[in-house]
Design a protein around this nucleic acid. Structure first.
Lengths: 231, 231
DNA sequence: TCAGTTGTGGAATGGATCGTCCATAACGTA
DNA sequence: TACGTTATGGACGATCCATTCCACAACTGA
């Protein structure tokens, strides 16, 4: 019987996310969001509470999505392809960071950096997300170990933590200014450096090669390519 | 002939840094800084210009310090100890992150996350800092290679980028909520995983065997970050 | 000791921002 | 069709905050 909403909640959240993503929590005005979404302040407040509630909503959705992307790439599948799945995931994350010419970084990192200290909700949600990612990676590493692609003597928990760190680190150094090509190389190197099985410590020339070989996976049609120019 | 300043500039900058560090740029009020330093607003503005100038000063000093710490730990010394220096540095960084119970993270990361996108000064300074760290690490890795502690077939540039990423990543995942013990383990694992030439370090969980990644296959289904816009 | 110059700190200013309010619009139901 | 309910959006109020201003203090050189 009441008048129905004239907006699509998901779409509004998306626009709000764009704003928070672009300018951070404190740097985003509710008026900006109102304008970006076309909603009036009344509707905005009526539907989402206040600024911090809205942000929590956006942030939570983002975290969910981050884990979902990881699940899509990682969860399930034959052990034989576990290493390929890991590789695909790490490269995908690097590619995301590399193509982020606007230097917005990841909302998860940005939000955590800005708010985790004083906002328990944000802190908790980001910690949860890290744990979930860690679990996914560990599972996949174990699978690769079972299949003999990774040295089974290695602790999957530790390797998972390392990979997670690399993934988040790529995002961080990317935001700090390293160029896209370097970011892609980092992903490569991290994967190349994973301990392979095969009786001990034989020398492996060509492991982390000075590039120029086929060791660099070609990333199919990138959306962006420019050197840096982010301003 | 003029009245001399009654405050120590360095000390004021230190207090200001504490504030910015704790609450971020937007979250810090000039009144906070005035109170924290005991200075009046007049003195503050008279001495440092405005809020952004003050932050740039603090941020710049921080970046300088970050590089200096790295130099202290890394620069110079016999090749024979290069790997030990690297290890010391990485562990120090992990320890810093691990002991940061207040979750303040690093001002460099925090500042870059909050401002790099819109503030060219911050962006430039953080990029410089990354490059400087990268150079230090690369030099040290080369030294370790000369001494035979790291596989000389590996590209020092790439390994340096990987280590930098791990160091910054530890900071990031720490802020995101991983526990101190895990952070320390990550540093361990990252070092253990560096490609060793012939002889072996079998004690570590990740007894190292360089591996070439079977290059990345599939096309990233999403050119952009996690949340997939349905538009 | 005196005058001139600069530092000091708190009050005042001006602009921006969050959140509320309210008159009105739009819809379902009787 | 008329009514009740909720959505809408722009105006409003209160607060906050960066910055300026100013009266006064402290110091130095003459």
């Amino acid at each position: 019987m009441p008048r129905p909403r004239a907006f699509d909640e998901r779409q509004v959240l998306e626009r709000a996310r764009e704003q928070f993503w672009a300018t951070g929590y404190a740097g985003t005005r509710m008026d900006d969001i109102a304008q970006a979404t076309g909603l009036g302040k009344g509707s905005l407040y009526g539907a989402f509470g206040d600024k911090s509630k809205l942000f929590h909503r956006v942030f939570g959705d983002w975290c969910t999505a981050v884990v979902e992307v990881a699940e899509e790439r990682l969860a399930g599948g034959p052990d034989a392809e576990a290493l390929a799945r890991l590789s695909g995931y790490v490269h995908l994350m690097a590619e995301n960071a590399a193509s982020d010419t606007e230097r917005r970084g990841c909302l998860l990192a940005k939000g955590a950096a800005e708010l985790a200290q004083r906002d328990p909700t944000v802190a908790g949600r980001s910690a949860e997300t890290m744990t979930a990612l860690l679990t996914l990676l560990r599972t996949e590493i174990s699978a690769a170990q079972r299949h003999g692609d990774i040295d089974s003597a290695a602790d999957p928990e530790r390797l998972a933590a390392l990979l997670l760190t690399v993934v988040r680190g790529i995002e961080a150094v990317g935001k700090a200014g390293l160029d896209p090509e370097t970011l892609r190389n980092i992903a490569d190197t991290a994967l190349a450096v994973l301990p392979k099985p095969g009786g001990g410590n034989a020398s492996r020339p060509g492991a982390v090669r000075p590039a120029r070989t086929n060791s660099v996976p070609s990333v199919p049609s990138r959306p962006h390519d420019p050197p840096d120019s982010a301003q």
